[in-house]
């Protein structure tokens, strides 16, 4: 039914990820130490004026955390969708030589649907940033 994937047959052991853990520890250490160092090294002369937000010298009005344009959300949502569609290409790309033209046709169909969705959102104006 399925073709066995390369992911399954690969022989990497969890151990080959060990150096990555080491690097993570090192990076964490570096970041942490630097953060601490800068905390202690700098001068501390705080005034209330200094601690308010800088908004081009204009007095701050209201909370900054207001809903931003819906476009940004839309982009994020579309990204999630298209990104996982891209995920489907990965197993195909690994196996596509064995799958041959038949598999290529299937992927062509998949890309067709992908493009359908793409054209749809374009036509709907989801990607229209210029107003």
């Amino acid at each position: 039914m399925y073709t066995e994937t390369v992911f399954l047959s690969a022989t990497t052991t969890p151990f080959s990820y060990f150096p990555i853990v080491l690097q993570l520890i090192a990076a964490l250490g570096f970041v942490g130490i630097t953060m601490l160092a800068t905390h202690f090294l700098g001068p501390k002369r705080k005034t209330s004026d200094k601690l308010i937000n800088f908004e081009s010298g204009i007095e701050q009005k209201g909370n900054a955390r207001q809903p931003v344009a819906i476009k940004y959300f839309l982009t994020a949502i579309l990204f999630v969708l298209f990104d996982v569609e891209v995920i489907f290409f990965y197993p195909y790309a690994v196996n596509f030589r064995e799958l041959g033209w038949e598999g290529f046709m299937a992927v062509l169909m998949f890309v067709g649907f992908f493009l359908c969705g793409f054209i749809y959102i374009t036509k709907k104006g989801a990607l229209k940033w210029e107003d």
Binding site: F113, C116, I119, Y120, K123, K124
Partner: peptide, 10 residues
Amino acid sequence: GVVLMFVGLF
């Protein structure tokens, strides 16, 4: 379903 999506556009 797909066709209807596009029908709405045109």
